[in-house]
Design a protein around this nucleic acid. Sequence first.
DNA 1: ACAGTGCCTAGTGT
DNA 2: AACACTAGGCACT
Length: 312
Amino acid sequence: MSTERGALALSEFPGPFDLQSTVESGQSYLWDRHDGLMYDESAVYGGDHWYETVVRVDHSGARATPAERWAEGEPVVVRVRQVDDRLEWESSIDPVPVLRERLRLDDDLPAIRAATPDDDLIERAFDAYWGMRLVDDPAVPCLVSFICSAQMRVGRIHGMQRELERAFGTTVEFDGRTYHAYPTAEQLAAATEAELRDLGLGYRAPYVLDTARMVADGEAHPEEAVGLDYEDARESLTRFVGVGDKVADCVALFSLDYLEAVPLDTWIRSTIEEYYPECDRGNYADTSRAIREAFGGEFAGYTQTYVFHYLR
DNA sequence: ACAGTGCCTAGTGT
DNA sequence: AACACTAGGCACT
């Protein structure tokens, strides 16, 4: 397959963009660094590293929903790096539409920031990583990777996803190397619990398996939450095994376009204790509403992601 | 509704 | 060296 190259002028999109903080902030576990130093603390921050992922896109346009595009499109490698105001890419297709979607390049970051409350911690967080975008990942890979995230560090979550790809994902040849797409629900459902445990998933193994079976059998699909009111969408996502409120919020925010979702993980909970004690209402749903308000409502998930990355 | 408890495991600290 | 503790929770009771 031939390698095409190109570049995207980031000045054509609203506000700044920073690739590294976007793909290495623990939102998405679907990207990898070409130099293999993903999440390497000693690596230089802000460097122009090449990042790679395998996407599935349907060129015919015949399939309407992202779920179908993901499930049925041919896997294709996309490699990208940022050099100042340019996003350079290498791929066997024109990846600009998919990059635009996945990296949320059309989000009006200055407008989003302007809509957040005037608050010292929030301002410092935005300043520290200004240009970081939310991601918009395919729903099933996002769901599975956040099921794996329970009580795990980002580096290990990332490593687990690479293991899942290597063990079960469709192979793709590109630029003289073999890549692996993220496994589909069907491919995961065909695995055994023992195989998943051998990859280091531990007690998450049956969760991933049961959830993959639910999707593969057509019993439920995470994208069925799209269009519901936010809290109903979160509730809907908890149908999947291994998915509680926190993981449901991650999927809502990082895949299903609910920018108001604020995943309450241990970091944000301790942040609430320290900076917003009045928002701690003792249970997930009420605390979620309170911190969502404190973080600016409509775009609270953006604020959360900046604050999380800043304090972590 | 809500609180308590067990669960896999690699890495870090003692 | 061996052991305790931790890490972006969840299911079950």
